[in-house]
Design a binder for these strands. Structure first.
Lengths: 327, 327
DNA sequence: CTGTTAGCGCGTTCAC
DNA sequence: GTGAACGCGCTAACAG
């Protein structure tokens, strides 16, 4: 910039103001400065700028693992929206480990981002406090429980999703409705399971513990779960699954045994991932609207970075049943 | 840091050297400084550090779209490896638009990253030149053509993948082997199509233009392609697809018409995406080893950032056929 | 409308 | 072993 100023025969101050427009500059000078800028191929150093202005125009996106089914979708929507507002996005993965998450929060103190979005896991209270202490605005998206927290949270109304699922399944069958949940303690597992029990009660359907399985969130585990459900010898007319991968596994196993879906047994998933439309039969699932969650999260963050203090908003995004062939 | 120095009763210089260890500091002083650091919860400002040292310890990851099938896998592996080496990762999406890509390269001049990884598209020569001029080391991963470029490139040996595919299909059937490619000009479409023709020739199989389709890289397009292949009335015993989504669509359509896979028609995909193991029949495909591509790319970049000049390496990663039920 | 000065938070001389 | 002073590249405060 020093060179630009010299080349244009003005002070650095003037160059700055040509760049930022924060002060009127005569057309002639402006012209000469722009000329020098293009001639020297000058680009302002954002790092120095950030240091001086105490704003880096960058936000950290912290999530368990970018490979998880919905993570890229979230990252995409959040990223686009943030970039629209002139923010750069840095990405951090916790690997689902709270300790790693905490250390990332610690590192955030060194890399002065203007804000942070935590997605796909619940922030620990100590981390939240640390961020607060360092005045780093943040939001916590995709939290998989119902706890109310004293910081901004955007979550999906999982109970409502389960309600819609069970409504459809109850229509489909008068028989028992089994449930295959995620592993206890895993994100979303507990809340979805409780929602299942609650909604079953509301529908006046009995819950039989023997028809409830808890397995890993993947496809093989789904097959396995179907086997053990069938192994009980108990009849059932539907299976609600906590996750699409599980549901696809369940379908595969059932079909392998000659059980017709949805006529003999109806099956539902949850999350509405891409393969749902490609498997046979296509899978009825629940759209979790990652786009809206990301949008709400970013909007909240932008507001917080804009100076609005202490808004501990609790946004609840409504899911939507996507009805396909399996139920 | 000023505060830490005062609290410990030393100069800022000493604090720096306690932090960086670039100069011996007496145990007693070190003790007092660490004490002050923890007491004041001090974290060095990486931004200021970067400005001073002219190294930001961050690299830019530029890709078309994080939602694309293999992008998150690449981002994951590259990210982990870069973080292991103390680098932060910023993410940028081109949306497949060369202009956007060029503007990102321009922005990189302002945001002084230590290096950049471009993945999933071929960098333009002008962008490469701009990076060179600004002394920003970079690598270009996942380039989908065979052109030799004067900058570091890591690519998959797509011809070899197609060779493996056709070898299997040729074993399966003595009949015609149809091909469903991606849209002309799309990433990987041309190279895979040419590889198909070349390998067919090597196998002594005739190529019938009427049994070649070019469609979008998605599932619906695959169904459509299968319909038009069947519509020709020409018999064929196998279909090689340029992409798994297309292949899954082809399978769906064939099965819908009562055609047995692989007995009547064998089908193969390409990329080995997750759903391959979940569809019926499971899809034979080609593993593209994004982990290895990412690793090679990062290693190349680390070497370049380490000061090794002008290494215009051309790494070729070998794909591997994953044999499943569809062929 | 423009320039001079000071300083963002550090690391690196060069001195002791 | 330690400290004082300067500067990385830029912007804000204070002049005129």
């Amino acid at each position: 910039m020093y060179d630009v100023a010299r080349e244009a025969g003005v002070s650095q101050t003037t160059v700055t103001h040509v760049l930022t427009g924060k002060r009127p500059v005569s057309a002639a000078t402006k012209e000469r400065v722009w000329d020098a800028i293009t001639r020297l191929d000058f680009h302002p150093n954002e790092m120095a700028r950030a240091l001086r202005r105490q704003r880096s125009h960058s936000v950290a996106l912290v999530l368990p693992n970018i490979v998880h089914a919905l993570a890229p979708v979230f990252a995409r929507h959040a990223g686009v929206r943030l970039r629209e507002h002139g923010f750069q996005v840095t990405i951090h993965e916790t690997d689902g480990d709270p300790e790693t998450a905490a250390s990332i929060v610690g590192a955030l103190a060194s890399w002065p981002v203007d804000g942070a979005i935590f997605s796909g896991f619940a922030l620990g209270p100590d981390s939240a406090e640390a961020l607060h202490r360092r005045q780093i605005p943040f939001v916590n998206c995709g939290v998989d429980d119902e706890e109310v927290r004293p910081w901004p949270v955007v979550r999906l109304d999982q109970g409502e999703g389960m309600r819609q699922v069970l409504e459809v399944l109850a229509e489909r069958t008068a028989g028992a409705i089994a449930y295959v949940g995620g592993p206890a303690g895993a994100p979303g597992a507990d809340i979805r399971r409780r929602a299942y029990e609650r909604e079953m009660a509301r529908l006046g359907r009995p819950v039989d513990e023997r028809l409830i399985a808890s397995v890993a969130y993947d496809w093989r585990a789904g097959r396995q779960a179907a086997r053990s459900l069938l192994g009980t010898g108990l009849p059932f007319g539907a299976v609600a699954c906590a996750n699409d991968l599980i549901a696809i596994g369940v379908c595969a196993e059932l079909r392998g045994r000659g059980i017709a879906i949805p006529d003999d047994v109806a099956v539902t998933g949850f999350d509405n991932i891409e393969p749902d439309a490609m498997v046979e039969p296509t899978l009825t699932s629940v759209e979790t609207h990652m786009d809206r969650i990301a949008q709400e999260g970013v909007d909240l963050l932008l507001a917080a970075m804009g100076g609005q203090e202490d808004l501990a908003a609790n946004v609840l995004v409504q899911p939507q049943l996507v009805r396909r062939a399996s139920a």
